[in-house]
Design a protein around this nucleic acid. Structure first.
Length: 435
RNA sequence: GUGGGCGUAGUGUAGUGGUUAACACGUCAGGUUGUGGCCCUGAAGAUCGAGGGUUCAAUCCCCUCCGCUCACCCCA
């Protein structure tokens, strides 16, 4: 992305909707990743990595070619062989493709997998929304029982709590399956036709095409109408009804472990991807602003079949790490540890400067974190540098030390007890001699 | 795609229709001979987002564009 620069060379900036994660910010991401891996492992989920791009058809069939994601948000390109590829806009389709491709139905079911990495959607950026977004997600494929639904929700909740994010709320709903949903959609259309004059223009346009979306409308007058609309849970077929009832019972069973797990059944909760069936859910932070959903997911019992596999149930969620990180920061749920080298080598004079690197190499090889202070600076400047690097010790070598063969080790942190130092004078002296 | 807000050193902010655009943090250098943090001094660093217009004169007023940002849409 070129912007006005000085002279003929343009200055570049990160593309719209993307951003750099600088070293100072990395600890937050490590915290989020490591906590995710630990949580997933506790639930028996193994990591899967799939390509950043997939055949375009996979997303058109899987996500649904009527969805906004497919219609206007995909980064699609043709490669030099003429194949149409798309940067993955979400994770479930790729994981299901891998499940089919590698015959994972031959493993004990369900197959539990988690993933984390970048996803790409061409959207207008705003708070909590990016063109390159990072997600952590899980999928449990091959078991349609409600226990798995609740296991997945529990995992998500547990993860968020492990990040010390509090005040979140869970919303759940059931949107039925291919058997019972058509009747519900008819009822919904029927209802909205009766209120056609009171809903917004957008809603009028999508009434026939995507009636579920009307429930999701944020406008106050539409919300009032949506509140009184027919509920999907009143139209469930027997199987879906039994499943839904069990999910609620099982969900209540989590309250002993998570007393703050307050969930609400929200019959206006629908989701924007076509593959969802039965259970859908979202977790939001307390002060829900615009783009605030932290985690969203649901069951997708028809997806595997849709993309060419034998009919197989599945359920999962995806969680926006960009949003998670900002939530962690705002709640101060994580304090990055102070980091710094064990030693900064402060060297005086040409001779010492020439030996500093070899000395550093020897110490590093012994497992000690070493930085060589910038050459050509005064001792004071090198000491200041050591301090600003948050080093534990400054190892000073100059003419005196070169002659005696022993470096001077100066502790830089008040609470440092020199007797506990692994860096004894002997170690230093030895390193000096061998250097 | 549609709206609103905002663009001044690396970062965060001041400021004014009129000679060298200010402050803080940060960076670098000093505060005598080889010892950090605190303090003091100094330096570097901004064609005041870009282009055009009004004016004797614009960083300041007007227009356009670009960028950032927030919201809608949709989603994580």
């Amino acid at each position: 992305m070129a912007v006005e620069g000085v002279g003929l060379i343009p200055s570049f900036r990160a593309p719209r909707g993307t951003y750099d994660i600088l070293p100072d910010d990395q600890p937050y991401w490590s915290f989020a990743f490591e906590t995710a891996a630990k949580t997933a492992a506790r639930f028996g989920y193994g990591r899967i990595d799939t390509p950043l791009f997939e055949p375009t058809d996979l997303f058109e069939r899987g996500v649904g070619d009527a969805t906004d994601i497919v219609q206007k948000e995909m980064y699609t390109f043709e490669d030099h062989g003429g194949d149409s590829l798309t940067l993955r806009p979400e994770g479930t389709a790729g994981v299901c493709r891998a499940y089919i491709e590698h015959g994972l139905h031959n493993q004990p079911q369900p197959v539990r997998m988690y993933y984390t990495g970048p996803y790409f959607r061409y959207e207008r950026p705003q708070a909590g929304r990016f063109r390159q977004l990072r997600q952590f997600g899980i999928e449990a494929i091959g078991d349609g029982s409600p226990n798995v639904d609740v296991e997945v929700i529990e995992l998500g909740w547990s993860y968020i709590r492990s990040l010390n994010i509090t005040g979140t709320t869970l919303r759940v709903n059931s949107i039925g399956d291919s058997e019972c949903r058509p009747a519900y959609l008819d009822a919904l259309r029927e209802y909205y036709r009766g209120h056609i004059d009171n809903v917004c223009d957008d809603d009028r346009q999508r009434l026939e095409r995507a009636p579920l979306r009307l429930l999701d409308c944020k406008k106050t007058q539409c919300q009032r109408i949506g509140d009184a609309a027919p509920k999907s849970t009143d139209f469930l077929c027997d199987d879906c009804e039994a499943h839904w009832t069990s999910v609620i019972v099982l969900l209540d069973g989590l309250k002993d472990t998570y007393p703050d797990l307050v969930y609400s059944i929200d019959h206006r909760l629908v989701r924007g991807l076509d593959y969802y069936t039965r259970t859908v859910f979202e977790i939001e932070p307390e002060r829900a602003a615009g783009q605030s959903t932290l985690l969203g997911g649901g069951r997708y019992d028809g997806l595997i079949e849709e993309i060419g596999g034998v009919p197989t149930p599945g359920i999962g969620f995806a969680l926006g790490l960009d949003r998670i990180i900002s939530e962690v920061k705002s709640q101060e749920g994580f304090v990055p540890p102070e980091i710094g080298p064990d030693v900064v080598i402060v060297h005086l004079g040409d001779e010492a400067g020439l030996r500093a690197s070899a000395l550093a190499a020897g110490l590093r090889d012994d497992g000690i974190g070493v930085l060589v202070a910038p050459a050509g600076r005064s001792m004071r400047a090198q000491m200041r540098y050591s301090n600003s690097m948050n080093a534990r010790y400054a190892l000073i070598i100059g003419d005196r030390e070169l002659e005696s063969g022993e470096g001077s080790l100066r502790p830089l942190q008040d609470d440092e007890d020199q007797s506990e130092v692994p860096l004894t004078v002997e170690v230093i002296a030895k390193a000096l001699r061998s250097g």
